[in-house]
Write a protein that binds this DNA or RNA. Structure first.
Length: 454
RNA sequence: CGGGGCGUGGCGCAGCCUGGUAGCGCGGCAGUUUUGGGUACUGCAGGCCGGAGGUUCGAAUCCUCUCGCCCCGACCA
């Protein structure tokens, strides 16, 4: 993409309403625009980042055998009257009435609807296990939206629903989600720690939240700092292997890690050596629940088991805050000049800075680089504006693309361009072709290490 | 929902107390200049001061109502 033809309304000054760094940077980098309290437009750059995240979520869910679909944002109230939540949910639910005076609501979550779909089409345990998920906009009429997309009223969430014949199978589905989530967050460059959580209004017996450590997190967290060293890395996971998946979960949940909701100081002190005890703050970026027959019983979602008995199906629901992740990643990865995108989620993998726009040789070198990178599947953002070098560098730093290729007459005279890492700030001079090769290797290697293959 | 604050060109703000028909910086446009980290200068365009009502000869400034937004707290992906 040529920047001169793109829509990237960057701001030099920080809008007054933005209090936390991710919100400020998203506004300054022209990623979002607020339309009402907790409601945002996603401008082109923000939309690209959001889509990168969404794509990783899709890939990892499908790798785990979960099936994508799409349910509507608007739901009939009657479904929620069946489960009893139409009254329980309270003011957070946005209620709407259509022209025929029918009660609708903008879905805050989809347990009722997915249960309705399930009961209409599934009769036998032989059709299980089943995990359906979608990535859809939700609306929760928060009393006090804040922190930009981290705590919006309208937000994009991946929510998945598991259906199993019994508790043991359902717990495997739960574990499978935990592992797939760990992979998902790792690919985004995040360290998200699963923490045992309190169940809240969705209700459930087993539940973990995934917390990204950040100063600005809304939850206070207590943990053994050795959990942050745990990585899935490139290891292969067989999602059908119950014992294997359970072992991974055990590994990642063995060390003490809890939010203030479930924190027990006595256990904390007994289990964690003092040198490893950490208290910090975290951003919740996902949650998994096993809730048994809470919805299947009142809504009549039953299957016939292998003994011919009609039994309510065991369910779980599992969410990832997709739009929130954009903010969480920025909270976890930025510096005083701007965003520092991890390779996996960068809206563009690399930026090209032309230091002498209008200079024939420099323009030509940039055009060649652009074509070569595009050829390798690495779409660059080419800053071809008629701006000074300083302005171009400042823009690149602000929007945080992980790599920058700087092209100017001085280097070109020696046949060199400059490849710079946004994260480390280190630059290396090399020929244009070598720079393209280097980037292709970097992104290929990153993809493999994070399990992007397959 | 309780407490606090703010709405003035695209953004950040001043003016309001002590009413007299709007100002600064950034940004935008045109040009000159500059050219490896937000260059300097000149000129131009752009707001009727969130909205409604009231007081007054006169309201961005005072009063009333209303809408919106932000912050702290209690609650949530």
């Amino acid at each position: 993409m040529r920047l001169s033809r793109y829509f990237l309304p960057v701001l030099k000054e920080t809008p007054a309403e933005a209090q936390i760094v991710s919100h400020r940077l998203m506004l300054r980098a022209g990623m979002i625009r607020q339309q009402a309290a907790g409601i945002y437009s996603w401008l082109p750059l923000g939309w690209r980042a959001l889509r990168r995240i969404e794509q990783i979520v899709h890939e990892e869910q499908q790798r785990a055998g979960h099936i994508p679909m799409l349910m509507p944002t608007l739901q009939p109230a009657d479904l929620w009257r069946e489960s009893g939540r139409y009254d329980d949910y309270g003011q957070e639910m946005l209620r709407i009435r259509d022209r025929h005076q029918r009660d609708l609501l903008y879905g805050p979550t989809n347990e009722e609807m997915i249960t309705d779909i399930f009961r209409a089409h599934v009769e036998s345990y032989r059709q299980l296990p089943l995990t359906l998920y979608h990535i859809q906009w939700k609306f929760r009429d928060e009393v006090r939206p804040r922190f930009g997309v981290m705590r919006g009223r309208e937000f994009l969430m991946k929510d998945g629903y598991t259906f199993d014949v019994d508790r043991a199978a359902a717990l495997h589905a739960y574990n499978r989600h935990m592992v797939s989530y760990l992979r998902t967050y790792e690919r985004m460059g995040l360290t998200a720690i699963p923490m045992r959580a309190a169940s809240g209004p969705i209700g459930g017996d087993d539940t973990h939240e995934f917390l990204v450590l950040a100063q600005t997190g809304e939850s206070e967290v207590f943990y053994d700092d050795r959990v942050t060293a745990l990585k899935l890395g490139a290891r292969q996971i067989d999602y059908d292997d119950r014992a294997g998946v359970a072992a991974v979960c055990a590994e990642f949940t063995a060390l003490y890690a809890r939010t203030d909701e479930t924190h027990d100081p006595a256990v904390f002190e007994a289990q964690v050596p003092e040198a490893h005890r950490k208290v910090g703050r975290g951003i919740e970026v996902g949650q998994i629940f096993y809730f048994g027959t809470k919805y299947s019983e009142p809504m009549g979602a039953v299957v016939v088991n292998d003994r011919g008995e009609r039994v309510p199906v065991h369910m779980g629901s599992h969410g990832i805050g997709v739009s929130r992740l954009v903010g969480a990643i920025i909270e976890a990865s930025h510096d005083d000049r701007g965003i520092v995108w991890p390779e996996g989620v960068a809206p563009f993998p690399v930026g090209i800075v032309n230091l002498r726009q209008g200079d024939g040789a420099t323009d030509a070198a940039c055009a060649e680089l652009y074509a070569a990178l595009t050829e390798r599947g690495l779409e660059p953002l080419y800053d071809d504006r008629d701006e000074r070098a300083g302005a171009k560098f400042a823009t690149m730093d602000l929007i945080g693309l992980p790599w920058r290729i700087t092209v100017g007459p001085r280097g070109l005279a020696a046949g060199k361009v400059e490849l710079t890492s946004r994260r480390t700030g280190e630059s290396e001079e090399m020929g244009p072709a070598a720079a393209v090769d280097r980037l292709a290797d970097l992104f290929c290697a990153a993809g493999q290490a994070q399990g992007r293959d397959g």
